[in-house]
Amino acid sequence: MFAIECASAYRGNSDVMTRPTDSASSDSAGRNEWPKPLKAETHELSFFYGHRQVLKRVSVPIAESNITALIGPSGCGKSTFLRCFNRMHDLYPGTRYEGAIVLHPDSRNVLGREVDPIEVRMRLAMVFQKPNPFPKSVYENVAYGLRVRGVRDRRVIDEKVEQALRSAALWEEVKDQLSALGTSLSGGQQQRLCIARALATDPELLLLDEPTSALDPIATGNIEELLQDLKRRVTILIVTHNMQQAARISDWTAFMYVGELVEFGPTKRLFTTPAKKQTEDYITGRFG
């Protein structure tokens, strides 16, 4: 069905046009155990910084209301992959996508030429590696996504802000200091503030890029717990280079290595009986 949908994303690159029907790399995606229903999927996604190809035909399904973890050694392209979803790379010149990222249920190809990146970013939300609250009040931080969308009604915003802060397990801590600067919170609180900011607009898919790598174990634990709660309402795609974290919180895991998808599967299965030697070496700590 989406093969037709995806065709529009192929930008006339012969290399991609002659894609093998079932190459070794797409086999490793383990199609027989692909989840259902899907919130999104990438289809032979390749990405280039200038002439440098960083992603090589990555096909990964993102299961609805699940947590999908993306693991792999540093520099393998995890962040790059994640940032394709909300077209972050469009902000910088000289970047190029190939392939498709399809958002369900409307099967919209995010990378389609007719698709405005802003439209995509309104549907998805992103949490970055380093907490990056705006130097504005806690309230304004969370409300900003709504303001961008033109919401003016004070009551609606109040309600959404509280809701989002509760979802991010931050409400109790900040309800008395909503006008304090977001940047004055602790690191863990800042990251939860960023999660609240992302949740306030009811995104369909939450993208997290190593959200706990700058935090201590307790703050990390808080956020992991939080994600477990959240997944009932929002699909989560999380990048982490902490394998224990991936094993703890995710339902599906994709293992990447130098820009290629090595293996995809249910987290339990992937961590207990990896199908690929490379995966096994990585999760047993033999490299990476």
Binding site: N132, P135, V148
Partner: peptide, 18 residues
């Protein structure tokens, strides 16, 4: 102004002018 502040705004769906 750090890049990550700018990216935070864009990621929320802000236009350039916003």
């Amino acid at each position: 102004i750090p890049v990550h502040i700018r990216e935070a705004a864009f990621a929320l769906g802000a236009t350039k002018w916003q």
